[in-house]
Structures are given as structure tokens and as C-alpha cells.
Amino acid sequence: MYDALHRQKEVDVNEIKIAARGVQVHYGDNHAIKDVDVDIEDKTVTAFIGPSGCGKSTFLRCLNRMNDTIPICRVEGSILLDGEDIYDKRVDPVQLRAKVGMVFQKPNPFPKSIYDNIAYGPRIHGMARNKAELDEIVERALRRGAIWEEVKDRLNAPGTGLSGGQQQRLCIARAIATEPEVLLMDEPCSALDPIATAQVEELIDELRENYSVVIVTHSMQQAARVSQRTAFFHLGNLVEFGDTSTIFTNPEDPRTESYITGRIG
């Protein structure tokens, strides 16, 4: 099936992958996200920054409807993925999440072997016709997750036996294995040591070639290092959104400036 909107796949960087318009999120009585508009570009790393509780993670979880698993959470507004509203009644969140993968704050490998961790997504989405194909998918994912060299001799060892940084790269590889179009990362380095962080950041930079990556981060340095576009959230509002270099050198909004100079946060 070939959709009109995807016709120019080869078109350069600035094709808009996700367009959010007037998004409001309520957690019970708590108004967590207030009227946010954001455009996420394809083949770009977009960083969400802001103080704790500003709503950046909540907004990220709206993008692949992970908030559906929380009963009291209510989302309004529209989020278009390639021009289709993902909150449309006809959309199956399961199908959506195959296109919009997610990596979490704490590495969460399944209590299975490394191989089965990676193969899990491809299996449930029926991506491999036989074992050989599956093997290939697993190897490709592990290579692109930059962890193949470390685990290729122990694919049947449990994933929980790896170090923290390896576990997180395994989780990234696991998310890549289902060949998503967008990869959401919720503070992927907050549980890692500096060396592992550096490895993961390098990986994110490489992933940009094929994916649209959205990363929530607590560290402004990290946002500056890995992202091309940055959005600053504060108290549920999107305060400022623009090129990372602009945000960090010449912010328009005084709140953004206070935050990046360390006065709020």
C-alpha cells in the first residue's frame, strides 16, 4: 500500500513525521499538558527538556498511546503520524506502537535470553517467515544497537545478566528490531554511568540516519549533544521549540533562559 503522503520518501530532512495540534492531557483532575503544538521531523533527533514534572514524559507517552494503559489518563487534541490521527477510533494502538517504538528510562530486558528479547517484537508482528530470517533480523538489530560484538557469543544467556549500559542498548536494539519509523526515548541514559551514556548517545546519533528519534532528557548537555531540535516544557506548557543551537544560545523566552542557565529546574 502506498500512501500519498509517503510518496517522496527520499525527500530531505525536513519532512514532518508527527504533527501534534492542541494536545491536552488530564490525569484525573490534574491538567498535565496544556494545549501543545509540536512538529517532529523525520530523520532528526528532537529533544524534550524541562524541569521534573513539566509534562515532557507524559507528552512523549502520548505519541505512541502508552498513556492508554493508565485508566485515569485522558488525551484531547490531535496527533498526526504521517497525516493520520493516531487517536482516531479506527487506530489500533498495537499497530501504532509497531511504528512508534519506545525505550524506557530504566533498562527493562525481559527475563528471557538475549535472542528472545530481540526476537520478541518481530515474532508478535509476524515479520519473519522462518528461523533464518529471524536470525538475520536479530543480528541486524543487535548490530545497529551497537551491542552485537559484546553478545554474539552468548545469545542464549539471559538478558538480565548484562550490565546496565548493555541492557539499555539491548532494549534499544529490541525496539529497532520491529523496524519502527519513530523511536521514542524516555530519559534513556538516566540509569547509566558516563561511559555507557556516551555509547548510547553515539548510538542515537547513528540512528538518526534512518529514524525520527524523540528523546526526553534531564541533562541539557545531552540535549545539546544529540539533538537537532529542542522543545522546552514548563508546567505542562510548551514554552519554546526550535533548533537546538538557537534554544541553547539565544532563547526567546525568559523561562527557557532561566532553565538553561540553571535558575529554575
Partner: peptide, 9 residues
Amino acid sequence: DGSYGLGAT
């Protein structure tokens, strides 16, 4: 979450 994030039912 990890499983839902991969698109599992």
C-alpha cells in the same frame, strides 16, 4: 511497558 512499547497486545 517494554512489551507494550514494542506493539504487543
